[in-house]
Design a protein around this nucleic acid. Structure first.
Length: 246
DNA sequence: ATGTCAACCGACGGTTGA
């Protein structure tokens, strides 16, 4: 994980919450002390080498889920953590890419998306205010990736992938970026390969979905593109979602 | 078909997943 990049972002932007994906370490290896010095505690759902998610927070939070409900007990992937804080549920997700492991790997992605939709439905049924945000590994439309950045059969743009994403939205959620910026070309990820950053061959795969009352409080969505130009950057850049006080 | 990267495992380099 890119500890110094994260620390400088916290220091500069001072978000109430920071949702991290692909921390790629177990919880005891997470660099909590550097963030603690800046006033942040962490809820960490880790795993050796791959996946892993964490939520950094300044005020106390209550852990709600450390696995996506509906996924089987033997699902070893650390891809979801949900906390309750500031009167809302915050779900941080790292949705399966779906391009590895053949058709079984892709089926896992679709299964995961179905479970996420079920979680959204359950939260709506509770009348909760909530946000489901993170790396969705989905380009919702052809406007969400640069020309030729992906091949036609890529799991990020397959029709079944987009149908599952739309099914999630159609439960009644609002995709924060497109609610405020419906037409702009916006990317949040640039591959390390093939000079993707230099050619601006990016993807928009990091999304924040808001429950109905939260959508009414949406003020701004900011992509911190400068982060990608730093030395040893992540291939994703941070996205800030600003909500008015509720 | 990738102009990449990091960690794995098992002993320096091929394999994996993104």
């Amino acid at each position: 994980m890119r500890e110094t990049h994260v620390a400088s972002f916290l220091e500069r932007e001072k978000p109430d919450f920071l949702l991290l994906q692909e921390i790629k370490c177990e919880a005891h290896q997470f660099p909590g002390l550097a963030f603690k010095a800046l006033g942040y505690d962490a809820v960490v759902v880790g795993q050796k080498s791959y996946n892993g998610v964490a939520i950094l927070h300044r005020a106390p939070v209550e852990l709600v889920h450390s696995r996506l409900p509906g996924m089987t007990e033997d699902d070893a992937h650390a891809r979801y953590v949900e906390v309750r804080a500031a009167g809302l549920n915050i779900g941080n997700l790292y949705l399966p890419n779906g391009n590895s492991g053949g058709e079984a790997g892709y089926a896992y992605k679709l299964h995961w998306m179905a479970a996420l939709r079920a979680r959204a439905s359950a939260l709506l049924a509770e009348d909760a205010d909530f946000i489901l945000a993170g790396d969705y590994n989905v380009c919702p439309t052809d406007a969400d990736f640069a020309p030729r950045a992906l091949s036609a059969g890529d799991a990020l743009i397959r029709p079944e992938t987009r149908a599952a994403f739309n099914a999630l939205l159609f439960t009644g959620l609002t995709e924060a970026m497109r609610a405020l910026h419906p037409q702009e070309t916006i990317y949040t990820f640039w591959d390390y390969q093939a000079g993707a950053w230099d050619r601006n061959s990016g993807l928009r795969i990091d999304h924040a979905l808001l429950s109905p009352r939260l959508a009414e409080r949406l003020v701004s969505v900011t992509v911190h593109k400068d982060e990608r130009a730093k030395a040893q950057p992540s291939d994703h850049v941070p996205v800030t979602v600003e909500l008015s006080g509720g």
